[in-house]
Design a protein around this nucleic acid. Structure first.
Lengths: 343, 343
DNA sequence: CTGTTAGCGCATTCAT
DNA sequence: ATGAATGCGCTAACAG
C-alpha cells in the first residue's frame, strides 16, 4: 500500500509549466465559452496538464463556484424493495448528466428524514429528490425547501412541489385489457383501502376500460380490501361464494392476490384454467413464491427515478419547466395467472 | 420557488455571535477531542449556531482538511441485476459510518471504468470499491491504486488488493446438504466453465460434503457445462439418458438449471417428484419464470457490499487490518425444486 | 485554553 | 486575450 503522498498537482502547477496564468488554465480546462484562446496556448496547457497528471479538485471547485454538482435522494433504501429501482434510474440519469447522486436513507421516521436531508444540505446538493415507498401525500420536512425539490412516488398536499408518480389509471386499464383479451366478461375486483391514490386510480382505469368494452362492473363485483393478503382471501371468498361468481379477479395489489390464490385453491379451482387473476405492484419476492406466477401490473420505478432527476436538472438550469406533475405508465407484466374465459 | 438566497451563515458568523474565535467554534462544532472548553462557552457557541441556522459546508471542510468523507463504488449498475444489492449493502454501511457513497457505472468496458474512477478521484474519494458482476480475477485500472481500494466479488491476480468474495465452497456444501437431507444418493452435477473460481469452489464444496456423507460423485456424474441454458439442457440430457440416471442434479448456476428443466420436462419427468434440481446464483428474474420455483444457492451481495465498506473504513483509519481476503457464506434459498428421493 | 495567521485549490472580477 | 487580485468557508499550526 503505497499511495505516494506527493503534493497533488494544482492548476498553478499547470499554469507555471505552460507559462500562462491560472486564469487561462481555468478557462481552457473548463472549456469556458465566449473566450478565444489561441490554439497553440490551448495545446500547451492541455499538454502540460496531461503531463503533470493534473486532476481537478471537486471540493475546491465547489467551494469557489458555489456549485457542487450533486443531487440528493432520500428514500427508504433498507426497508423498501422498490427503492433500489428508483435509485438505479436516478443514478443512471445523474451520471449521464455529469453529476453525482448522494443517497440518504429515510426509513419513514420523520425525524430521521429531516436529519438525512440536513446531511445532504451540508454537502450543498443542488437539488433533492424525495421518494416514497407507496403513492401517497407526504409531509415534506421544512428543510427540504431550501433547495429545488421534486417528489417521486408521492406528492404534497399543497401541490407546490413538482412530482413524478405512476399513472395508476393506466395500470387499471392495462389489467382490464388483458382480461378482456382473454375473453372475460364476468370480472371481479378487490380494492385497496378507499381514498388512497392507488385505490382510486386503479379502480377508475379498470372500470373505464371495461365499460368502454361494454362490460359491466357492478357494485357487488367490487369488494373492499385493505391491501393485506388476509383481506384478499376474504374478498375472493366473497366473490366466489356469491351467486354467479366471476371468471377473473383483478386484485388491487399483489399481496391481496396472494390471499386470493388461497381462497381460490381452497375451492378447488385452478388458476388460470378456471379462473384468472391479475395483481398490481409486480413485487418480485411475492410473484416469485406464487404458483402459478402472477400476472401483474408493474410500477415504473426506474423511470420515475430518471424522470425525477431530469426534472431537477431542468429546474436547476433555470428552464421554467414547471409542468409540475408527471404521471408515468404502469405496464402489465405477464406471467401465468391469466387464461381464457370458460364462459 | 423561493429558495431565499441570503448569504449562508458561516463559522465566522457564529464566532462573532458567540464572541469567540473561529477556531473555538471549529473545535466545538467538530467535537474535537483533547481540548477542554468551558461548558458555558460551548453552550454559547452551540446556541449561536442553532439560532443563526448555521450549516457546515462540506466542500470547504473537505478542501481545508484534505478529507472528503467520500467512498467510491464502481459497478455495472445498469446491466447487472446483482449490482443493486451490492450498492444497498455498501450504501447502508457507509451511511452508518457517517460517510457518503459515490457510485459510478463501469459497464465492463475497461476504458469507461478508468474514466469512471477518474471522476471519483476528482471528488477526492478516500477509498474505492470495485465490484464485479461475476467472481473473477480482474485487471484493476492503474488509477485505482491512487487510493485505498478493495475488490468485491472479484480479486486481482497479484493478490495485492484486499478482496471480499463469496465462499463458493460453502454454497456447494449447502446444495449437497439439502439434497442429502432429502435422501438423495444418486446425484449429478453440471459444471461451469472449468477453472473459474465459481466452478472450482462449487464443485469442491459439493463433492466434499457428499463424500463426507459417504455418497460418491463419480466422474460420469459430472458433466461439463459452460454456464448457458443450452449447455444445461445438454448436460441434463447426458445425465438422464445414460445408464442409472441420478435422482437429483446440482447445476453450477441458474441459467443451466433452466436448460436442465427443459431436458427433464422433455423426458416426462416431474420436478421435484421424480427428480430434484438445485441451482446457484438465486437470480430473481430467472427463478421467477421457472416452474416449479428453483431452489438455489444465493450469493451474499448485500453482505459483500457492506463488508467492502467496512474493510475500507478499517484501511483508511489506519488499522492495520490487512487480513486481505474475506469469503462470505452462500446460503441456500429454498423454493420448490427439491423433493424426496425415490430411490 | 483561546485567538492569530496562513493556506487548501479554484473561480471570477477587473485591469491591462 | 490574458494576468493580478480577491474570496469561497474551513482547518491547523503556532502563539499568546
Amino acid at each position: 500500500m503505497e499511495h505516494t503522498r506527493e503534493r497533488p498537482v494544482t492548476m498553478a502547477d499547470v499554469a507555471r509549466a505552460a507559462g500562462v496564468s491560472r486564469t487561462t488554465v481555468s478557462f481552457v480546462l473548463n472549456g469556458r465559452s465566449g473566450v478565444n484562446i489561441p490554439g497553440t496556448t490551448r495545446e500547451r496547457i492541455l499538454h502540460a496538464a496531461e503531463g503533470l497528471g493534473y486532476r481537478r479538485n471537486a471540493a475546491a471547485q465547489a467551494l469557489a463556484s458555489q456549485r457542487s454538482g450533486l443531487f440528493g435522494l432520500v428514500t427508504e433504501i433498507v426497508t423498501s424493495p422498490f427503492a433500489a429501482d428508483v435509485i438505479k434510474g436516478a443514478q443512471w440519469r445523474s451520471w449521464e448528466d455529469n453529476r453525482f447522486l448522494l443517497i440518504a436513507p429515510s426509513e419513514n421516521e420523520q425525524m430521521m428524514e429531516a436529519a438525512a436531508i440536513e446531511k445532504l444540505l451540508e454537502q450543498r446538493i443542488e437539488g433533492l429528490i424525495i421518494a416514497a415507498s407507496w403513492h401517497q401525500a407526504v409531509e415534506v420536512p421544512e428543510n427540504a425547501h431550501q433547495v429545488p425539490c421534486v417528489l417521486v412516488h408521492c406528492f404534497d398536499e399543497s401541490g407546490r412541489l413538482p412530482s413524478v408518480v405512476p399513472d395508476e389509471e393506466s395500470g387499471g386499464r392495462a389489467a382490464a385489457q388483458e382480461l378482456l383479451a382473454y375473453g372475460h366478461r364476468e370480472i371481479g375486483h378487490i380494492t385497496l383501502p378507499p381514498g388512497i391514490p392507488a385505490q382510486v386510480g386503479r379502480l377508475r382505469g379498470f372500470g373505464a376500460e371495461l365499460s368502454a368494452a361494454g362490460v359491466a362492473l357492478p357494485d357487488h363485483r367490487i369488494v373492499a380490501g385493505d391491501g393485506t393478503a388476509e383481506s384478499g382471501y376474504h374478498g375472493a371468498a366473497e366473490l366466489l361464494d356469491g351467486p354467479n361468481p366471476p371468471t377473473a379477479i383483478f386484485c388491487g395489489n399483489d399481496r391481496m392476490a396472494m390471499g386470493a390464490y388461497d381462497a381460490i385453491k381452497e375451492r378447488g379451482l385452478r388458476i388460470p384454467h378456471e379462473i384468472s387473476v391479475v395483481g398490481f405492484d409486480d413485487q418480485q419476492a411475492l410473484a416469485d413464491s406464487l404458483r402459478p406466477g402472477l400476472t401483474t401490473v408493474a410500477l415504473p420505478f426506474e423511470e420515475m427515478g430518471a424522470a425525477g432527476v431530469r426534472k431537477l436538472t431542468a429546474m436547476t438550469t433555470g428552464s421554467r419547466d414547471t409542468s409540475s406533475h408527471l404521471a408515468l405508465d404502469c405496464p402489465l407484466h405477464r406471467r401465468s395467472s391469466v387464461g381464457f374465459a370458460l364462459r
